[in-house]
Amino acid sequence: KELVLVLYDYQEKSPREVTVKKGDILTLLNSTNKDWWKVEVDDRQGFIPAAYLKKL
């Protein structure tokens, strides 16, 4: 499984997104879309802008 580091706080703006904090380490589920990556946060799955994440 691939992990990503959150570079900036992000507040979800729709039900398909998730809220994260800078410094969080998340499981990356899908990065095929270059703009929005799907991650897992506390048993929730959702999207975050790829620019907010860095692969570890």
Rank of each mutant, 00 (worst) to 15 (best):
Leu28Cys: 09
Asp43Lys: 11
Leu3Trp: 14
Trp36Arg: 04
Gly23Leu: 02
Ala51Val: 14
Ile25Cys: 06
Gly46Gln: 05
Leu7Gln: 04
Val18Arg: 02
Arg44Met: 07
Lys22Val: 06
Asp9Cys: 05
Asp42Ala: 14
Asn30Trp: 08
Thr19Ser: 15
Thr27Trp: 15
Val20Pro: 00
Val6Arg: 00
Trp36Ile: 04
Lys38Asp: 03
Glu17Pro: 06
Asn33Arg: 11
Arg16Val: 10
Lys1Ala: 13
Asp42Lys: 14
Gln45Lys: 12
Ile48Gly: 01
Leu56Cys: 10
Lys22Asn: 05
Leu28Ser: 02
Lys38His: 10
Thr32Glu: 15
Thr27Phe: 12
Asp24Gln: 15
Gly23Asn: 07
Ala51His: 15
Thr27Met: 12
Thr32Ala: 13
Val39Gly: 00
Leu28Gly: 01
Thr32Trp: 09
Ala51Met: 15
Lys22Gln: 10
Trp37Asn: 01
Lys55Ile: 11
Arg44Tyr: 06
Gly23Thr: 01
Glu12Tyr: 07
Arg16Phe: 14
Gln11Lys: 15
Asp24Gly: 06
Glu12Cys: 13
Tyr8His: 14
Leu28Asp: 00
Thr19Asn: 05
Tyr8Ser: 09
Ser14Cys: 09
Asn33Ile: 06
Ala51Asp: 08
Ala50Ser: 12
Asp35Leu: 15
Tyr8Gln: 14
Arg44Val: 07
Val20Ala: 12
Lys54Trp: 11
Val4Ile: 05
Leu53Asn: 01
Ile48Tyr: 01
Tyr8Cys: 12
Asp43Thr: 12
Lys21Leu: 08
Lys38Cys: 12
Ile48Ala: 15
Trp37Gly: 01
Thr19Phe: 04
Leu7Cys: 06
Ala51Cys: 14
Val4Tyr: 06
Val39Arg: 00
Pro15Gln: 10
Arg44Thr: 06
Gln45Thr: 13
Leu26Thr: 02
Tyr10Arg: 03
Lys1Asp: 09
Leu56Met: 11
Val41Thr: 12
Leu28Val: 06
Asn33Ala: 09
Asn33Asp: 15
Phe47Gly: 02
Ile48Asn: 01
Leu53Pro: 00
Lys38Leu: 15
Lys1Ser: 11
Pro49Phe: 04
Thr27Ser: 10
Leu28Ile: 05
Glu2Ile: 13
Leu53Ala: 10
Lys54Val: 13
Ala51Thr: 14
Glu12Thr: 09
Arg44Cys: 05
Asp42His: 13
Asp24His: 08
Leu29Gly: 01
Leu26Ile: 13
Asp42Leu: 14
Leu26Val: 13
Arg44Ser: 05
Tyr8Asn: 11
Leu29Ala: 04
Lys22His: 06
Val20Gln: 01
Glu17Phe: 05
Arg16Thr: 14
Asp35Ala: 15
Tyr52Asn: 08
Pro49Val: 02
Asp43His: 12
Val41Phe: 10
Lys1Thr: 11
Asp42Gln: 12
Val18Asn: 02
Ala50Pro: 07
Lys13Cys: 10
Thr19Gln: 04
Tyr8Glu: 12
Tyr8Arg: 14
Asn30Lys: 07
Ile25Lys: 05
Trp36Lys: 03
Ser14Trp: 07
Leu3Cys: 10
Lys1Pro: 14
Tyr52Phe: 15
Leu26Glu: 00
Trp37Cys: 03
Asp35His: 15
Glu17Cys: 06
Glu17Thr: 07
Lys13Gln: 13
Trp36Gln: 03
Glu17Asp: 05
Leu5His: 04
Lys1Gly: 10
Lys21Ser: 10
Lys54Thr: 10
Asp35Ile: 15
Gly23Arg: 02
Val39Asp: 00
Pro49Ile: 03
Asn30Thr: 08
Lys55Cys: 09
Lys34Val: 12
Ser14Phe: 07
Gly46Asn: 02
Asn33Val: 05
Ala51Gly: 11
Phe47Trp: 15
Lys34Met: 11
Tyr52Asp: 02
Lys13Val: 08
Lys34Tyr: 09
Leu5Lys: 06
Asp24Thr: 14
Leu26Pro: 01
Val6Cys: 08
Lys22Thr: 07
Asn30Tyr: 07
Gln11Asp: 14
Leu56Arg: 03
Leu26Cys: 11
Glu40Ile: 11
Arg44Phe: 06
Val39Trp: 01
Lys38Gly: 05
Ile25Ser: 02
Leu53Trp: 01
Val18Glu: 02
Lys13Leu: 10
Glu12Gln: 14
Asp35Glu: 15
Asp35Tyr: 15
Val4Pro: 00
Ser31Pro: 05
Val6Phe: 01
Asp43Val: 09
Phe47Thr: 03
Ser31Gly: 11
Lys55Asn: 06
Lys34Trp: 09
Asp9Trp: 04
Glu40His: 08
Ala51Asn: 13
Lys22Asp: 02
Asp42Ile: 11
Thr32Tyr: 10
Trp37Asp: 00
Trp37Tyr: 05
Val20Thr: 04
Glu40Leu: 11
Leu29Asp: 01
Leu7Pro: 00
Pro15Thr: 10
Thr27Gln: 12
Gln11Asn: 14
Asn33Trp: 09
Asp9Leu: 02
Tyr52His: 09
Tyr10Cys: 02
Trp37Leu: 02
Leu3Tyr: 15
Gly23Trp: 06
Pro49Arg: 05
Gly23Ser: 03
Tyr8Trp: 13
Leu53Thr: 06
Asp24Trp: 15
Lys34Thr: 12
Leu5Cys: 07
Leu56Gln: 05
Gln45Tyr: 09
Ser14Asn: 12
Lys1Ile: 13
Glu12Gly: 14
Lys34Glu: 12
Lys54Tyr: 13
Asp24Glu: 12
Glu17Asn: 06
Tyr52Val: 11
Asp35Gln: 15
Glu40Asn: 06
Lys55Arg: 15
Glu2Gln: 12
Glu17Met: 05
Lys1Asn: 11
Ser31Ala: 13
Glu40Val: 11
Tyr52Arg: 04
Pro49Tyr: 03
Leu29Trp: 05
Pro49Ala: 03
Gly23Asp: 07
Val39Asn: 00
Val18Met: 12
Gln45Val: 13
Asp24Lys: 07
Lys13Asn: 10
Leu5Glu: 10
Gly46Lys: 04
Asp24Ile: 06
Thr32Asp: 14
Tyr10Leu: 01
Glu2Trp: 12
Ala50Leu: 02
Pro49Leu: 05
Asn30Ile: 07
Lys22Glu: 07
Arg16Gly: 15
Arg44Gln: 07
Lys21Ala: 09
Leu28Arg: 01
Val18His: 03
Leu5Ile: 14
Lys55Ser: 06
Leu28Thr: 01
Pro49Cys: 05
Pro49Lys: 05
Val20Asn: 00
Tyr10Asp: 01
Val6Thr: 03
Asp42Thr: 09
Glu12Leu: 12
Glu2Met: 13
Thr19Lys: 04
Ser31Tyr: 09
Glu17Trp: 04
Lys38Thr: 08
Lys22Ile: 05
Glu17Arg: 05
Val41Asp: 07
Leu7Glu: 03
Thr19Ile: 03
Trp37Gln: 01
Val4Ser: 02
Gly46Pro: 03
Leu53Glu: 00
Gln11Pro: 06
Ala51Ile: 13
Lys38Phe: 14
Tyr52Ala: 10
Leu53Gly: 06
Leu29Cys: 07
Glu17Ser: 06
Leu3Glu: 06
Phe47Ala: 03
Lys21Arg: 14
Tyr52Glu: 01
Tyr8Met: 13
Val18Pro: 02
Ile25Asp: 00
Leu56His: 05
Val39Lys: 00
Arg44Asn: 06
Asp9Met: 03
Glu17His: 06
Lys54Asn: 06
Val6Trp: 01
Glu2Cys: 14
Leu29Pro: 00
Pro15His: 10
Lys21Asn: 09
Asn30Gln: 11
Asp24Phe: 08
Gln11Met: 11
Lys38Glu: 15
Asp9Asn: 09
Val20Glu: 00
Lys22Gly: 06
Lys21Cys: 11
Gln11Val: 12
Ala50Tyr: 03
Glu2Lys: 09
Leu5Val: 11
Pro49Ser: 03
Leu53Phe: 03
Glu2Gly: 11
Asp9Tyr: 04
Asn30Pro: 04
Leu29Met: 07
Asp35Arg: 15
Lys1Leu: 14
Asp35Gly: 10
Lys13Asp: 06
Ala50Arg: 14
Ile25Glu: 03
Asn30Ala: 10
Leu26Asp: 00
Gly46Glu: 06
Tyr52Lys: 05
Ala51Phe: 12
Ala51Gln: 11
Leu3His: 10
Glu40Ser: 10
Thr27Ala: 11
Leu3Met: 11
Pro15Phe: 08
Ser14His: 14
Lys54Ser: 10
Leu5Tyr: 10
